[in-house]
Amino acid sequence: MIDWITIFSNAAQELISPTTAAYALAALGLAIHFGYTGLLNFGQAGFMALGAYGYAISTLSFGFPVWAAVLVAIGASVIFALILGIPTLRLRADYLAIVTIAAAEILRLIFTTNTFDAITGSATGLQGYKTGLAALNPIPPGTYGFGPFTYNAFDWWIRIVGWTLVVLFALLTWLIMRSPWGRVIKGIREDEDAVRALGKNVYSYKMQSLILGGVYGTFAGMIFIMPRAVVPANYQTSLTFFIYAILLLGGAATIFGPIVGSMIFWVLLSFFSGFVARAVEVGWFPFMTQVQAGQLRFILVGIAIMLIVIFRPQGIFGNKKELAFVK
């Protein structure tokens, strides 16, 4: 018999999980790039990797305190954004796409290679960097919560930190997007030549947007590694594609879209994986193995991306009139 309660409570847990927060933040950064500025950044996984490794390496190899490790991660992603932006932001949009996807892969390969094993831990990755954040935890040890949402002090702490960051960054996005700066950014999305003809330094604005959204991704990367280890295989191109799926699901040029999109994405994915895995277990799908059941969700994400783009390009929260795509 299928254990529906476990499936549902596992799915419900995703609602506030740090992973959901991390994806929401990464998608919010991508909303600044893609939804508001029209930049095709396909290297968000790279920004997240820099957050993860920047934080973990500064903590483990150099013994930096939390604040310094965070600054290192931010610095690394600012430099990364500059390296990506300088050659490509003057070129057509698809060049940025190819360069960002290539740069994110370069980072992943560098983090994977055995050459730098001493620092990066190569394919095995890194762990043991959480003590700094745990030391800042004001919650006394113990287990708190109700129903499916019962966690220990550290688990609550990373949820609080993660979602506080999401709220702060959402607020920041809301502030800047209703300001004249946001107006220029949206103008660039519509037609950068027109904005240039009005005396705005389009190149500089695109760079600012790339850096800003990248920093969001860096914070996402740092939240992402709190419930798990840093493993290079997590930062594959498909991570960026998942974030795109979330962004498109919620609505590209919206603030709530990426956040709610991330919640829906993870709850549904968890529910679906849980259901299929249990169903295979009890023999409802005799043609499928447990391993195959795990792969099914990737197939579904792929199909979902296609269907959303074709049939509801504005996402759940997007204004129907405002089809948030660059021309």
């Binding site: 502030l175 300001s179 004249p180 107006r183 705005k200 600012q208």
Partner: peptide, 8 residues
Amino acid sequence: GESLFRSI
């Protein structure tokens, strides 16, 4: 307000 920092 077209400066990123002042826009906040």
